[in-house]
Design a binder for these strands. Structure first.
Length: 116
DNA sequence: AGGTTGACAAAGG
DNA sequence: GCCTTTGCCAACC
């Protein structure tokens, strides 16, 4: 185990993201009191056998980041679509619609009707 | 011990 | 709306 508490916190927050919803690195970074880069790094450092939906984590632009190795970005899009997340013509996700707010849980006003 | 890279974000042009 | 620069923090060489 020996996993840094920081990483554990990041993973914990990502796990809190419900299916069909997406969040941004900056938002998680804000929750764990860290920078967005650290969050991205934590995702890249995901160990095998993790139950963390890293695919639900995208950048503030509402788009998946073109990572350097592998075609994970394509996988991410496929997984999100499988969860019910729709992408824009340019491959962009509507954060206002699918964006998961850590504080939005209390006031459902901003929470767009989950049903399309 | 120091420099570079990286699944980012915010601000400026 | 897109591209460039700066700041950030952690891992890798």
């Amino acid at each position: 185990m020996t996993a840094s508490p920081l990483y554990s916190s990041i993973y914990a927050h990502v796990r809190r993201v419900p299916a069909g919803r997406v969040t941004t690195y900056g938002r998680i970074a804000r929750q764990v009191a860290c920078t967005a880069r650290t969050v991205g790094f934590a995702m890249a450092a995901l160990p095998a056998g993790h139950d963390v939906p890293w695919q639900r984590v995208i950048n503030s632009q509402g788009k998946v980041s073109p990572r350097r190795s592998g075609d994970g970005d394509l996988i991410q899009r496929q997984l999100l679509e499988a969860e019910g997340v729709q992408f824009d013509a340019r491959g962009r996700v509507d954060l206002v619609r699918y964006g998961w707010d850590p504080d939005g849980g209390r006031a459902g006003r901003n929470r767009t009707k989950e049903r399309l």
